[in-house]
């Protein structure tokens, strides 16, 4: 469960270019909920995810994960609970490392990285089995450098990597923004499947209203750093795509 209490974020406070990116946000996302976040450019969506993950510090307020106040905890420590998929496929993976090495690190997200060789035949098989789920034929290419793959392939792998180790929370920031329509559909489908299979609590930002309508058990619209609309499962189900297009007119 995620609780955000009175979260505010001001960039460049006291300077000419001061921006109030988030204004007093209060949100409670239940365990297992899949919240889709929409909102105009600059409405604070990414900032919220960054504050949740610990990549940015809130100017005010508290972040509580599973009842534990993590407001002051560094990003790399919060990754015990949080897995992330970024807008840019290059951000979530290391280009200079092989697919296998990337998966090895992902499998140790919540654990110390020790001075032992952890990649053995068993681990390789586990990675191959995992990647075979994608049906992209990548399972036989685990020694390829991540950098040699397409954005769609990398994004799909990043998603799989997020469930290599126990995860509770999955944050997706426009995971399909850099992808073609076919890869986009594949990625969201996969995300949806993984969220259900692993009982993840998920937040997914998207500008694609069709996806926002189709996926998720909750829909939140941001505007100018605040929550404008918040629809829970049954309310969301009653929404038509037409209604949603109306929000942005």
């Amino acid at each position: 469960m995620i609780e955000l209490e009175n979260i505010s974020k001001v960039f460049n406070r006291g300077e000419a270019n001061e921006v109030a990116a988030l204004r007093n946000i209060n949100l409670r996302i239940e365990k297992g909920e899949f919240a889709v976040i929409v909102g105009a450019n600059g409405s604070g969506k990414t900032t919220l995810l960054n504050i949740l993950a610990g990549a940015e510090k809130a100017s005010d307020g508290h972040v509580i994960l599973g009842g534990k106040d993590v407001t002051g905890l560094a990003e790399y420590k919060r990754s015990k609970w949080i897995a992330r998929v970024f807008q840019n496929p290059y951000t979530g993976t290391a280009s200079d490392l092989s697919i296998l090495d990337n998966f090895r690190l992902a499998a140790l997200r919540t654990q110390p990285k020790k001075l032992v060789i952890g990649i053995d035949a068993g681990f390789k098989q586990r990675v191959r089995d995992m990647i075979a789920k994608l049906g992209m034929g990548l399972e036989n290419k685990i020694d390829l450098l991540m950098g040699s793959l397409s954005g769609g392939q990398r994004q799909a792998l990043t998603l799989l990597m997020s469930v290599m180790d126990t995860a509770n929370i999955l944050l997706l920031d426009e995971p399909t923004a850099a992808l073609d329509p076919k890869s986009s559909a594949l990625i969201l489908n996969l995300a949806d499947r993984l969220i259900k299979e692993f009982h993840l609590t998920a937040l997914c930002i998207t500008h694609n209203l069709k996806y926002a309508h189709q996926y998720g058990s909750r829909l939140i619209q941001f505007q100018e750093g605040g929550v404008l609309r918040d629809y829970h499962a049954n309310q969301k189900g009653a929404l038509s795509l037409q209604d949603m297009f109306g929000w942005f007119e």
Partner: peptide, 27 residues
């Protein structure tokens, strides 16, 4: 040996993608 261990992979990743490394629990 060192570079092939889990620690070594984390080292190599640090120079490749800082955002990924932090998201994977590496200081």
């Amino acid at each position: 040996f060192v570079l092939r261990t889990d620690f070594g992979i984390a080292m190599r990743a640090t120079g490749s993608s800082e955002s990924m490394v932090k998201a994977l629990g590496i200081n």
